[in-house]
């Protein structure tokens, strides 16, 4: 364990302590997330960055209690003081999608192709609000779609996911997450499958939602440019471990860990010489 792990950046709302996720392999159990601590204050925004395979997405699934059956999890995940890892599944279901909502990388495959987007947004709302009528849920869904700037929402609500563009689908996913006014939004690579201009729009939308609703945000990405725009703290993960953490500015201006330096070097800059390809810096340690 590195010393950085023992210095939580913030305190309070979301407290992840000593989170370890492991999978069985032919040669014994392998930790894909090991001894991770995360802290987030209410309304804060935390970026988790790292390359693919660094355990970012599994961290988010572990927080939600949605790990694959084969995975084992240890450590604690406290939301407002309540330990989600100790909760019975039935109570955890009331947290999922209500207090903590999640959006995923690939919005097309994350939406069920057989139902209208309206039905899927309404389902998210109705499963957490007992006794609401179909009409109320419909109204909430239209409002949520308007909130994420889907034009002509009242009409578009009856369309199917494949009738939307990539960016619009991600907006639908975000609308679905917003219906219950969650305190925490976990966005797992929300812009990775989208093209650059659409990425910027979705990030702007996430920022706007944070500002308007005060939702806390955990943003998982491999793209440092993305976290620099909307989060205030960063956790850099590598091979399941946190290698560096701190406020965005200090990490960008003065990266301590060679891996973070390498990641920052890998970000293309506009003033780069054309054709002068830099090779990726290799860093030591476990891949």
């Amino acid at each position: 364990m590195t010393s950085t792990n023992r210095h939580p950046t913030q305190a309070g709302f979301l407290e992840v302590r000593d989170l370890t996720v492991s999978f069985p392999t032919a040669t014994g159990r392998v930790d894909v997330v090991s001894h991770l601590d995360l802290d987030l204050e209410p309304g804060g925004a935390l970026g988790i960055v790292g390359e693919s395979g660094s355990g970012k997405s599994l961290t988010s699934l572990a927080i939600m209690g949605l790990l694959p059956d084969k995975a084992t999890r240890s450590g604690t995940v406290r939301l407002d003081g309540e330990d989600l890892t100790a909760m019975p599944e039935s109570r955890l279901r009331r947290v999922r999608g209500d207090r903590v909502a999640m959006i995923f990388q690939d919005p097309l495959s994350s939406l069920n192709p057989y139902y209208t987007v309206g039905a899927q947004i309404e389902e998210a709302y109705r499963s957490h609000r007992r006794g609401v009528t179909r009409r109320q849920a419909h109204r909430v869904a239209v409002e949520a779609m308007e909130r994420v700037h889907i034009k002509d929402a009242a009409h578009r609500i009856d369309h199917y996911p494949h009738q939307f563009s990539g960016g619009m689908r991600q907006r639908v996913m975000i609308a679905m997450a917003l219906t219950t006014e969650p305190e925490l939004l976990i966005a797992d690579e929300p812009t990775t499958a989208l093209d650059v201009t659409v990425q910027a729009q979705i990030l702007a939308l996430l920022q706007e939602i944070r500002r308007d609703t005060g939702t806390a945000l955990v943003l998982i990405t491999h793209d440092l440019a993305v976290v620099s725009e909307i989060t205030d703290h960063i956790v850099v993960m590598r091979a399941g471990e946190c290698v560096e953490r701190g406020p965005v500015e200090s990490i960008f201006s003065d990266p301590k860990h060679p891996y973070t330096q390498a990641l920052l070097d890998a970000v293309p800059r506009i003033d780069d010489e054309i054709g002068a390809l830099r090779s990726l810096t290799t860093t030591g340690g476990r891949p």
Binding site: G97, D98, F104, S110, N112, P113, Q120, S127
Partner: peptide, 14 residues
């Protein structure tokens, strides 16, 4: 294995 089932679970559906 579909992603939309993960979405359904993440919504908190039984």
């Amino acid at each position: 294995q579909e992603n939309f089932l993960r979405t359904a679970r993440a919504k908190g559906l039984a």
